[in-house]
């Protein structure tokens, strides 16, 4: 966190404020390889942007109907309406997994129906809830046809190299998230030969840093993955899974997790388990949201703005 202070002039307090108050709407600007938070979403949009703006949504859990939010499809729709109402149309959206709650065809259909109303291209990575159909193939058939392995891939946009990873398929007893040898080899090959000045955006469902080991909030072989990215001046890691905003800066790497559009989860260690957190009705939409990410070519500044559904 201290790197954040003197490199970028963003105070620790500001970051903590963001962790406390911001929603899943995240706006990034890249600056000299170090992300810079512009503040709330409205403020960020007011700034002139000529580079690349994209959105992150996560953990829509379509099909979830428990007390923490009996209508997860409804709050996803609210999030997508927020996206559609943005004054500046983002280039595309990434969805960092747990599209559905139970991997049912109908849940995927319902999610697609709502998300497609954004009229944006969506780049998905799967959460563990998207792999619980008996044959574990629905996600792959719908979203992973052009991808490698269980759904990993990369693409380029405005000079930024995006890499979508899968750490939710091959989970081991007693372990955390897992990328696996095949995917790690692919990643090493994928980034080899790219210029060190290429900004990298790495996205996956489970955090690629250990947020809280006791609750499984980390990925066993993420250090190996990040070791392939050492030479790059700007690496941004975007994750979901923990249904709350967290941010950490380590050297050239910025880690960030987005809010869910379905239900909040407790802060690490503050509850008996990481299960869905029931909050008063008027608080729920302050704890759900989307993220807006902005890359400015000349300023080289990456900014994330988390924006709640309400408040």
């Amino acid at each position: 966190m201290s790197e954040f202070d003197h490199r970028d002039g963003v105070s620790r307090r500001k970051v903590l404020e963001c962790m406390t108050w911001c929603g899943t709407g995240v706006l990034w600007t890249i600056s000299g390889g170090v992300p810079h938070s512009l503040g709330i979403m409205g403020e960020a949009q007011a700034a002139e942007t000529k580079g690349l703006t994209f959105l992150q949504i996560s953990d829509s859990h379509v099909g979830f109907d428990k007390p923490a939010n009996p209508n997860a499809l409804g709050t996803l729709e609210e999030a997508i309406k927020k996206v559609s109402a943005l004054p500046q149309k983002p280039a595309f959206m990434i969805h960092t997994g747990d599209i559905t709650h139970l991997s049912k065809e109908k849940e995927f259909d319902d999610a697609d129906h709502i998300i497609s109303q954004s009229r944006l291209d969506v780049h998905y990575v799967p959460g563990e809830h998207d792999f619980v159909d008996t044959d574990r193939k629905i996600y792959q058939e719908r979203y992973g046809r052009a991808a490698k392995g269980h759904g990993w891939y990369s693409f380029d946009a405005n000079g930024v190299h995006f890499i979508g990873l899968v750490n939710t398929f091959d989970l081991k007893a007693g372990g955390l998230g897992n990328l696996g040898t095949e995917q790690l080899e692919w990643l090493e090959h994928d980034v080899k030969g790219r210029s060190a000045s290429t900004p990298i955006v790495l996205f996956a469902h489970i955090p690629l840093w250990t947020v809280y080991q006791d609750w499984g909030w980390g990925t066993d072989d993420s250090a190996q993955a990040l070791s392939y990215l050492k030479k790059f001046g700007s690496v941004t890691v975007l994750n979901g899974h923990i249904h709350q905003v967290m941010q950490k800066v380590e050297g050239n790497v910025t880690f960030h997790t987005a809010r869910s559009t379905a239900f909040p989860q407790p802060a690490p260690g503050t509850a008996p388990s990481p299960g869905p957190m029931k909050v008063p009705e008027d608080q729920l939409r302050k704890m759900l949201g989307i993220a807006n990410v902005n890359f400015k070519q000349n300023e080289q500044r990456l900014a994330i703005v988390d924006s709640p559904l309400q408040g």
Binding site: E128, A173, G216
Partner: peptide
């Protein structure tokens, strides 16, 4: 027979 939760593998 050792087993775990295949969504939350920390559960054994």
């Amino acid at each position: 027979y050792q087993y775990f939760c295949y969504l939350h593998p920390q559960m054994v």
